[in-house]
């Protein structure tokens, strides 16, 4: 993941070749061309056919009114009416947007800081380091559905762990049912799982920081905090970008955990849940669901495109 980084010129093998050596480029033989085309073509077709074609389909469907039954001829095209309804009437839409934003902010602050801190602490000669890493990373491999279940055992008002530990058994806090706090309760669970992932990314990033840089800084008399903020952290910029994007996407995609907990109702509405509720189920409202999906898509692309721009424009400059 951290491969975004370009190699510093100094260590690039045999030094950067002069720019205009294009004439050395060898032409490929016919079979090689075919082989290469197949190697690129088959995956590209699979990807386009099953990811991008349906995406375009969803955009088209967002302008329709359709219950998902029958063929194309049963679809009624209604222009932007779905969007108008979503923005003006659909009672769950704005809460969902708000929850997605809170989700995003929370993930960007809490697990990122915690993950970075843990990575820094573990990135040194330390006994049991591997055991610590395993324990911290463990929640990450569990499915969100299981995470949802585990945390229900903790949050339930009737004999849940948290209320019992806090001595609130007599007058329990309804962590999941109270819509003022349940979002944060669920976010703790999500962060529990996300922190290990972030820690891992930073750990990989830190491992790749040339120790010579740190040693040099230490020789110059920098404290370890100074070394970290002045030397290590800036070098890790590509990792930071990856972490930011991973987090944004996780926040926008968040779904399983609230769906397992209460189907994303009562204070746990998220855009992904609205899409699912509208397009899966007995009486589908494909048009409205697709419109929410397109809104979600637009937000995602708003993140994806600058990210890709950042990554690939740098590549062009190399």
């Amino acid at each position: 993941m951290t491969a975004v980084q370009e190699k510093p010129k100094a260590v690039a093998p045999s030094g950067p070749p002069p720019r205009r050596r294009g004439k050395r480029a060898t032409a490929l033989a016919g079979t090689d061309k075919l082989v290469l085309a197949l190697m690129l073509g088959i995956p590209a077709v699979v990807h386009l056919l099953f990811v991008w074609v349906p995406t375009l389909g969803s955009i088209a469907l967002s302008f329709s009114r359709w219950n998902g039954i029958g063929g194309l001829e049963d679809i009624e095209w209604i222009g932007v009416a779905n969007y108008v309804e979503i923005f003006s009437e659909y009672p769950r839409f704005w809460p969902a947007v708000q929850h997605n934003l809170i989700w995003l902010l929370f993930l960007l602050v809490v697990p990122t800081t915690a993950g970075l801190l843990l990575a820094v602490l573990l990135d040194r000669e330390l006994r049991f380091s591997r055991i610590y890493q395993s324990a911290l990373y463990m929640p990450m491999v569990l499915s969100l559905a299981l995470v949802g279940f585990i945390w229900q055992l903790i949050y339930t008002p009737d004999g849940g762990l948290l209320n019992s530990l806090l001595g609130l058994s007599a007058d329990p806090v309804d962590w999941i049912g109270d819509s003022d706090i349940n979002l944060y309760a669920v976010l703790v669970a999500a962060a529990w799982r996300h922190t290990g992932y972030i820690m891992l990314l930073y750990l990989a990033g830190l491992k790749s920081v040339d120790p010579a840089l740190k040693e040099a800084a230490a020789l110059d008399g920098a404290s370890s905090a100074q070394t970290f903020f002045r030397v290590t952290f800036p070098v890790m910029k590509p990792v930071n970008i990856v972490v930011a994007v991973v987090t944004v996407i996780e926040a926008l995609r968040a779904f399983d955990i609230v769906y397992v907990i209460n189907k994303g109702r009562n204070g746990l509405e998220l855009l992904s849940v609205l899409v699912t509720d509208n397009i899966i189920g007995e009486a589908s409202r494909i048009g409205r669901g697709s419109a929410v999906a397109v809104i979600l898509l637009t937000i995602s692309l708003g993140v994806i495109i600058p990210y890709l721009y950042q990554v690939f424009s740098k590549e062009n400059r190399t």
């Binding site: 690129l40 995956p43 590209a44 990807h47 386009l48 056919l49 099953f50 990811v51 991008w52 074609v53 349906p54 995406t55 375009l56 389909g57 969803s58 469907l61 998902g68 994007v245 996407i249 926008l252 995609r253 779904f255 855009l271 992904s272 899409v275 699912t276 397009i279 899966i280 589908s284 494909i286 669901g289 697709s290 999906a293 397109v294 979600l296 898509l297 995602s300 692309l301 993140v303 994806i304 495109i305 890709l308 690939f312």
Partner: peptide, 24 residues
């Protein structure tokens, strides 16, 4: 462009493509 296409595709929310994919 190809690389961007693949990367962007992976970042799409899955729910976006459910209905057309099922039809397809």
């Amino acid at each position: 462009a190809l690389l961007m296409l693949f990367t962007a595709g992976n970042l799409l929310p899955q729910q976006v493509i459910v209905t057309p994919l099922w039809r397809l």
